[in-house]
Structures are given as C-alpha cells and as structure tokens.
Simulated scan of single mutants.
Amino acid sequence: MHREDFTLCNHKLSLFQAEKADCPLIVFHSFSDEGEAVYQELRKQNAAECNFLSIAIHDWQREMSPWPAAALSKDGEDFSGGADAYLESLLSAILPWATERIHGKASFIGIAGYSLAGLFALYALYKTDVFTRVASMSGSLWFPGIKEFCKENAMKILPEKLYLSIGDKESKTRHPILQTMQENTEDLLKYFKSMGIETTYEVNPGNHFQDVNLRCAKGILELLQ
C-alpha cells in the first residue's frame, strides 16, 4: 500500500493506492482526518483490496448539505446548501486527480460517508452517474426535505449496491427533527428496495457517536463484496 497526500480545491486528500491494477476506488468523506483510521479498520477486517480516497471536509454544514436548512440548536451552525458546488469540484478536479494515480482503471467507483457525508453520498446519486455503489452510514436522513426529494426525483444511475445503517439509539432523542432519522431511513430503505436496488440495512448498537470508524468500515466492506 502506498499513501499519497495532497491538497486540492482547499481539501486535504489522502489516497491509499492498491498494489494491484484495476481495483475499485472508494471515495470517503470525513469530518476531519479520520480516513486513515477507517482504512486501517478495513485492513483489520480483511477487506478486498481497493483504492481508498479520503477527503477531509472542513466546511461540513455547507459542503455536505444539499440545500439550506436551519441549525439543529441555538448554538449550532445553519446548513447553507453547498453540496452541488462541492460535487462539481469533486467531479471536475478531485476524482480526475485520484484516477490518474491508481494502477489501471477502477473496476467501479463507490462513495461512502458518515452522518452528513452519508446524506451527501446518497444525494450524489441524483446528480451524477459516476458512483455505482453507495454506503450511507448513520446518514443524516432526518435532513428536512430529503425523503421527499429522494422519492420525487430520478437517480442518474441505479446503484449496483446500496448500504444504509443507523445506531439503535440515534432516534431516541428529545429533538423533534432527529427523532425522524430511523423512520426516514427505513421508509427510504423500502422505497429503494421497491426500485429493485440491492440494499443492505444494518442497525448498530449505540448512539450517533459510537464505533464510528468500525461502522464506516462495515459499510465499505459491503460495497467491496
């Protein structure tokens, strides 16, 4: 395994290159720089060889949110809806940089993320046909309007595999918006299955902050099967 770090479009990139040619490329968005820990967890779980591109997202509320929405708390930051602009950078600059550096051609390109990045991974299916496998771990499917958006719009490509997960305590909260997370996730699960998409759903023990790296690795492992 060879690691290359680079900064492009104001994002810190870490590309873990597979030794073999023509291995899959997994694009993973992280809140800071936990990509290394997730990649090591994948190795610990004996994952199939892949190219792993970790992208550190610093303006989380902007770049991972599909449209503007109010903050979840008085002290929180509003969501400013910059996902389309970020996706343009990902497709036009970041992905070409990565695909030039891997051996051969990726057998498929998958996208994965946790929390808001899990929401973004799902949203990307409606904007581009580049990603054929998607993992949304504890994805923020409480986000206002996302369930309706998914049902009222057509995906650019039906993914070969889709993975959704949630923690069993994530919806056990007093916050009325966050309470919808499991209900929305399971409603969309049924909808995606009705479209004929091969969808895996996993309920993990704990709240939103438990075993994050392991949960991310489990979702990516599913994409690599």
Rank of each mutant, 00 (worst) to 15 (best):
T200L: 14
Q179S: 11
E186R: 09
A154F: 03
E148H: 10
C150S: 06
N153H: 12
T199Y: 12
D129R: 14
L188I: 04
I197M: 08
Y201C: 14
K156D: 05
A135G: 12
I177S: 01
K169D: 07
E198D: 14
K190V: 08
Y163Q: 05
L141M: 10
K169F: 06
E170A: 09
E183H: 09
S165I: 07
V130I: 15
T173V: 02
Q182K: 15
L162D: 03
R174A: 13
T132Y: 02
S171R: 02
E198K: 15
S171H: 13
E148D: 05
H175D: 14
T200P: 12
F192N: 07
N204W: 07
T173E: 04
S194N: 10
D187N: 08
S171N: 02
M155N: 03
G196P: 15
G145Y: 05
W142R: 06
Y191A: 09
L189H: 06
V130M: 14
S165D: 08
W142G: 06
S138Q: 04
I197A: 12
P176T: 00
L178G: 07
R133H: 12
Y126F: 14
P144T: 00
S136I: 01
I146K: 00
E148K: 11
V130P: 10
T199V: 01
K190R: 15
I177P: 04
E202A: 09
P144W: 03
T199L: 10
A135D: 01
T199W: 09
H175N: 15
L178H: 07
S165V: 02
K151G: 11
M137G: 06
L164V: 05
F143V: 01
S194R: 08
F131Q: 07
V203N: 04
R174L: 15
D168H: 11
K151N: 04
D187H: 00
T128A: 07
T132W: 11
L188G: 03
N184G: 00
I166L: 14
L189S: 14
Q182D: 00
R174N: 14
T185C: 05
A135Q: 11
N204D: 13
W142K: 03
E152S: 15
R133T: 09
G139R: 13
I197C: 15
D129K: 14
L162Y: 05
Y201W: 11
T128M: 10
